[in-house]
Amino acid sequence: MTLPILFEDGEALVIDKPAGLAVDRPRSGGESLEDHLDELKLGFQRAPVPVHRLDRDTSGCLLLARNPKALKRFSAAFEARTVEKVYLGIVAGTVAEESGTIALALSKISSAESGWRMIAARKGKPSVTHWTKLAEIGEATLVRFVPETGRTHQIRIHALAGLGLPLLGDPVYGAGAARGASRTMLHAWSIAMPRDGKPPVSAVAPVPADFRALGFDA
C-alpha cells in the first residue's frame, strides 16, 4: 500500500488515509498506519506521528508531525480549535434544509452485548458541527460537514441525531452496508492549520472512488 502525500515540509505531513486502514493498532490485530510509519520518514531519522485520529472507515486528510516540537504545537492548535477540517459525508436519505448548525452534547455508553458507542446526551461534552447540503441523488445526499469540536464519532452522531439520517453504510449508527456502500461514507476532504512565521499547513484529499461510484463529487 502506497499512502499518497498531500502536503510535506520539514515539520508536517498530510497523507490521504485510505478507508479501511486503522490509525492505531486494532486490538484484534491487523494492518494499521503503524506499519507504514517507517516508509513515511522520507529521509528523516524519526518516523512521523499522527496528530489526530480518523476512524478506520474514514478516508482522507490525516496530519502527522515530523518531530516532537511540531507535535506539541500541532496538538495545541487542535486544542485551541484553530485547525479547520472539512468532511464530506453521504447520508442515507434526503435533507430538506440547505444548511445549518448542529449543537448536541455527546457522551459514551457501553454494554457487554453491544460494546461502546456515542449518544447525544445533555450531560455529555459540548459538540458543534456546521453543515451544508451539496447534492442529492435518489435517496442519498452529499453533505459538507465542518466540525468546531473534535469528539469521537461526532459527525456520525450529529448526522443521525441532528439531521435525522445516518451516514450511508454506518454499521453502528445506521443500517450498515446498503445501496452500494461497503463502509461508512465519510471523507476528510480538507485540513488547514495556521502557523506562526510559516505558511499554513493546507491540503485537500481527492473525492474517493466509492463516493464517485455513487455519483457524488465535490
Rank of each mutant, 00 (worst) to 15 (best):
Ser59Gln: 10
Leu142Ile: 03
Met193Cys: 04
His52Trp: 09
Glu84Lys: 13
Trp116Cys: 11
Leu33Ile: 09
Phe44Ala: 08
Leu33Lys: 14
Tyr173Cys: 09
Leu163Thr: 02
Leu33His: 10
Ala105Trp: 00
Glu31Pro: 13
Leu88Glu: 07
Val23Ile: 13
Asp55Lys: 12
Leu54Trp: 10
His52Asn: 12
Pro200His: 00
Arg179Met: 10
Asp9Gln: 04
Gly164Pro: 12
Thr132Asp: 15
Val83Gly: 07
Asp24His: 15
Glu139Pro: 11
Leu167Lys: 00
Ala209Arg: 01
Leu163Met: 10
Ile15Glu: 02
Lys17Asn: 05
Asp55Met: 13
Leu6His: 03
Ala76Phe: 13
Gly100Leu: 08
Ala175Trp: 08
Arg117Gln: 10
Phe211Met: 07
Ile157Asp: 01
Leu167Cys: 11
Ala209Gln: 05
Gly124Thr: 01
Leu186Val: 07
Thr101His: 11
Leu186Ala: 02
Pro199Arg: 11
Ala213Cys: 05
Arg25Ser: 13
Trp131Lys: 12
Glu113Asn: 10
Glu97Gln: 14
Ser75Gln: 10
Tyr173Leu: 06
Arg25Lys: 14
Ser114Phe: 04
Asp210Val: 05
Ala19Thr: 08
Lys108Gly: 04
Lys17Gln: 07
His187Glu: 01
Gly20Val: 11
Phe74Lys: 01
Ile157Gln: 08
Leu88Cys: 08
Ile5Asp: 01
Ile119Tyr: 01
Asp16Pro: 02
Val91Pro: 02
Phe145Trp: 14
Gly93Val: 14
Glu98Ala: 14
Ile15Asp: 00
Leu167Arg: 00
Ile137Phe: 03
Ala47Trp: 04
Lys133Asp: 12
Arg183Cys: 05
Ser28Gly: 15
Gly30Ser: 11
Glu79His: 13
Leu62Gly: 15
Ala188Asp: 01
Leu165Ala: 08
Ala209Tyr: 03
Gly169Tyr: 00
Ser75Tyr: 04
Arg53Ile: 07
Val95Cys: 09
Ala12Ser: 09
Glu31Cys: 11
Glu139Cys: 02
Pro26Gln: 13
Gly115His: 06
Met193Val: 00
Ala103His: 15
Gly30Lys: 15
Val146Lys: 04
Lys72Ile: 07
Ile137Gln: 07
Met118Tyr: 07
Leu6Lys: 03
Trp116Ser: 15
Pro26Trp: 15
Arg53Lys: 11
Phe44Met: 10
Glu97Ile: 13
Leu106Tyr: 04
Lys41Cys: 07
Glu31Gly: 11
Ala203Lys: 08
Gly164Phe: 09
Ala121Lys: 00
Ala103Asp: 14
Phe211Gln: 05
Trp116Glu: 15
Glu139Thr: 14
Gly29Tyr: 04
Ala175Glu: 15
Arg156Cys: 00
Trp189Ser: 06
Leu3Arg: 02
Arg183Ala: 03
Met118Phe: 09
Thr2Cys: 01
Val201Gln: 04
Thr184Ala: 04
Gly176Leu: 03
Glu97Val: 14
Gly43Asn: 01
Arg117Ser: 14
Gly60Thr: 11
Ala159Tyr: 09
Pro50Gln: 03
Ile155Leu: 14
